[in-house]
Design a protein around this nucleic acid. Structure first.
Lengths: 226, 226
DNA sequence: AGGATCACGAAAATCGATTTTTTTAAAGAA
DNA sequence: TTCTTTAAAAAAATCGATTTTCGTGATCCT
């Protein structure tokens, strides 16, 4: 777990929040694990109140589970939840893509191409830990998918999309043997990009559906949970 | 503003959160208004920390605006935001309706009919304040729309839908001269229900779009904001 | 006069201690 | 042994006080 607070953080709470969020998304905090407020406060050398505030915010986003009088814990991962999450993401991404393709301009197209280029040149795994996705790759992946829908230009839809994307990040980054030789993720991304840039809505949605479904299937197949 | 905390609330924070949320949705806290933490704490006779925690959660939901070092305020209402919100709701409701219609059973149908019946028999306005929607009507309205999509059975989509519904509640309940004689809300609700029960997806989506668009148009026409 | 600086009061942010509640585990009875 | 009951420990919830930051208006310089 990263012990240093991001320096750009304006407030301490914000710093705690961001640190916890990053650790959650990267699965550095194990699913199901209890989050002891006092311990977290000690690790971050910050008061209990601030940790509570950060955890409350994360709970509102669904990134931690909160139970009255019992405190907080990392949400456990579950097959059914992954299925529901994937279904939701397919639908929301479709909506965002539809609007983005209708509204996108040249700058939007350029951003997509740039993000794709970056993504395909970042190594998937960190040199020190072959079993997990690297933070850099995850960031590039996030940016690519965000770029695709950026022109959607509806703050509510984009925020919703981001929330769900973050959720699935936890599943994606779980330490599973992901060296699936059959799959060519780069190709899947390229297929989505091509359809989007050509403004073929149905094809873009279908490619996205295939992409998300494939990810889910691999995770399910690897005896992920339950 | 309601000064009493809900008795069922397990924890004080939860109580503060629910009270604030209710006051926000009912527009008893005026849009744009500063939310002074100390004042709220005094009103609720609860400590500052708890109020902060509740406000943080609400901020994560988008029901209050938070700015570092400047505290919290009630989000102001804006034409552009209402337009984006309505667009988002139309899309999300469509997705939820599609799934609900595909999956709904008899119990779901019965709940819809019951909720509609209740809704059409609750008076829209409180006897004491003719300018605002009554809490009872708002609750019945919420339940009706929730019943329509309940069979969607995807927790993520339903939570998303609820979040957006709550947002629009603020606009809907703003004290505007809403005695629009042209509009027959009951008829709009019935049209949606009929299409849903007949499992006609496209018709249900179209009726919902019309319903949400009509509400928005009326709010926009009444010189709501900006 | 106009604008910059500084000091003061208000509000937010943060902390450390206190009170409740839950969990753990130990002791006792069936 | 197994199930209760009870006591101690741990953790969560809550509070009140302290520190920091912000906004306002008065003061001072040009």
């Amino acid at each position: 777990m990263s012990l240093v607070l991001a320096p750009r953080a304006i407030s301490l709470t914000e710093g705690v929040y961001e640190r916890l969020r990053a650790d959650l998304l990267a699965c550095r905090l194990a699913p199901g694990m209890k989050l002891k407020i006092a311990d977290l406060a000690a690790e971050t050398s910050v008061s209990i109140g601030l940790v509570r505030e950060a955890l409350s915010r994360l709970a509102a986003e669904g990134l931690v589970a909160m139970e009255a009088q019992k405190g907080f814990r990392v949400p456990s991962i579950a097959v059914d939840d992954l299925k529901a999450l994937t279904e939701a993401r397919i639908e929301i991404e479709a909506v965002c893509l539809k609007l983005a393709i209708a509204r996108g301009d040249i700058a939007w197209e350029a951003d997509i191409i740039a993000a794709f280029h970056r993504l395909s040149h970042v190594p998937e795994r960190a040199p020190d830990d072959e079993t997990r996705l690297s933070d850099d790759y995850a960031a590039a992946h996030t940016r690519f998918h965000a770029a695709l829908v950026a022109a959607c230009d509806n703050a509510w839809l984009l925020k919703t999309r981001e929330t769900l994307f973050a959720q699935s990040e936890r599943y994606r980054r779980l330490s599973v043997p992901m060296q699936n030789p059959i799959r060519d993720v780069d190709k899947e991304h390229r297929a989505i990009m091509t359809a989007v840039l050509a403004r073929r809505v149905d094809e873009a949605i279908e490619a996205t559906r295939a992409h998300l479904t494939a990810t889910m299937t691999i995770l399910l197949g690897s005896g992920l949970c339950d």
